[in-house]
Design a protein around this nucleic acid. Structure first.
Length: 225
DNA sequence: ACCCAGGAATTGT
DNA sequence: ACAATTCATGGG
């Protein structure tokens, strides 16, 4: 809440479509999530529906987090890195993670053993921080962008998921090379090169606060199905 | 009983 | 570099 939303929204208001999204959902903001919780959340988010992701994260909190009583209700904190690093693929798989269990466990161990410091990522420029994150198992370009945007204050990060891809194809195709649009329509999944092209389109078109644009576009697209 | 999900890693051209 | 395939599982 400590940012000037009006200034940010004005800077990303570059075309008619985002103008509509901004008008309809004005007030939508980004969170600054705990980086560790954010990393695990988005590793788990790959190729999963949002209700399923919520379920997986709740299962992990119940099993490995600490119980906190509030107003007569029980809640569970998100488990620390040390805690998850000390589990097993079987334990995590039992939370519904499937093949992601291995990624969460290996990334936990790697972060713990290297004594990894998240604040260094905040100091790095966007691209370097992104490449650093992508060295961890289960973190590709999209997951890295989500972590940078939602927990490390990189407002230029522009995650491209299936919904953002739809937004771009439906409303911004005229701003991309025809060859690229054709390829994107032909196949479902994105190659790494195609991802970076859509990603850099977003950053170039919307500027320093492209991440906010992504959120407005993402939410708008999801609400109009 | 089906379908597909806020993709990443691996293997084949 | 790009394309195709595999990956485990649960909520709708």
């Amino acid at each position: 809440m400590d940012v000037d939303l009006q200034e940010i929204v004005d800077s990303i208001d570059k075309d008619q479509h985002i103008g509509e999204a901004i008008k309809k959902y004005w007030g939508l903001r980004l969170i600054r999530q705990n980086p560790w919780e954010c990393i695990v959340s988005y590793i788990c988010a790959t190729y999963k529906s949002i209700p399923a992701i919520k379920s997986m994260l709740n299962n992990m909190a119940k099993k490995f987090g600490e119980r906190v009583a509030l107003d007569g209700l029980d809640f569970y904190t998100f488990p620390e890195c040390e805690k998850l690093a000390d589990t097993s693929v079987e334990d995590l798989s039992a939370c519904g993670l499937g093949y992601r269990a291995k990624y969460v466990l290996e990334t936990s161990k790697k972060i713990l053993e290297s004594n990894f410091n998240f604040e260094n990522l905040t100091k790095m420029p966007y691209l370097k921080a992104k490449k650093t994150l992508m060295d961890f198992p289960g973190i590709g370009a999209k997951v890295a962008d989500c972590i940078l945007l939602f927990s490390l204050d990189k407002n230029e990060a522009f995650p491209v998921d299936v919904w953002v891809k739809r937004v771009i194809l439906n409303h911004y195709a005229d701003k991309l090379p025809k060859v690229l649009v054709k390829k994107l329509c032909a196949r479902e999944s994105l190659s790494s090169g195609e991802y970076e092209k859509l990603n850099s389109f977003g950053r170039n078109h919307f500027g320093r606060y492209a991440g906010y644009a992504q959120e407005y576009l993402y939410h708008f697209e999801r609400m109009t199905i």
